[in-house]
Design a protein around this nucleic acid. Structure first.
Lengths: 124, 124
DNA sequence: GGCCTGCATTGATGTCTATCGATGTTTCTT
DNA sequence: AAGAAACATCGATAGACATCAATGCAGGCC
């Protein structure tokens, strides 16, 4: 699987001070907007939810995701690719099937970025 | 000012169980996607940041927002409208000027929706 | 090898969206 | 009332995006 994810909400570096902390500069805004744009589609949001509801370390086979939508298989594959490029999920092929999972900590870091009280650590 | 905001991340009703709690149904996903889509643009994200960094109850005049971008005044007005329709901000005219503010609790509720640990109450 | 299954990629198409100039609306000032 | 200033709305346009059918590719099975 290709390696072309963002590192915005990336790892530990905390991406940025938080939406309410200080005005974002153009670069920060551009990077973060990609992540929110990825979540800004009903299909992708449901995909994220389907994957994330498996819990930390949980995985979902594409063969379980595709039939959950009234959409063609290429379309689902396209949305999964966008979520992956946004740095939200990753995948691995095992035999015939491909499994997706939510990159650890990403959602909590995003939440910390949005929260006004700024109390979101690394999440561990 | 017109009243056409969403009520997704609305008030107290907590919108939904959380992204990782259970798979979202189509309606929840459609409503929430509108909010994330509103944040999925660099200009709107910077606008939100400019407004939100004023703190709770803080306001910003459009006349301060527009010159912060290399964009025409109608374009900024358009983005502000989208943010308002997404239920993220509201505005009020006072004299010649129009002031925008972040709707109270919206960002924290969004953060609570994204967080995997689910520890975001009503905020207040 | 040959075939089938699961998923990704490609190419095409209709729809949405970001942006602008022009114009309308509201308010203040004189 | 007339003019100016601050925003919003309108109409047009170029670029982006969601979607599909067709095809490609990898892995399991006979």
């Amino acid at each position: 699987m290709s390696k072309q994810e963002l590192e915005v909400i990336g790892q530990d570096a905390a991406c940025c001070p938080g939406l309410s902390a200080a005005p974002l500069d153009e670069d920060q805004a551009a990077d973060l907007a990609k992540v929110f744009k990825a979540l800004g589609d009903p299909v992708r949001l449901r995909l994220m939810s389907l994957i994330a509801s498996r819990g930390a370390g949980g995985e979902v086979c594409v063969c379980e995701l595709t039939p959950a939508f009234d959409l063609s298989q290429p379309t689902i594959s396209h949305h999964l690719k966008l979520l992956r490029q946004a740095g939200l999920i990753d995948c691995e092929r095992r035999g015939t099937w491909v499994y997706y999972w939510v990159l650890p900590g990403v959602l909590d870091r995003l939440a910390g970025f949005l929260a006004t009280s700024q109390t979101a650590g690394t999440g561990a």
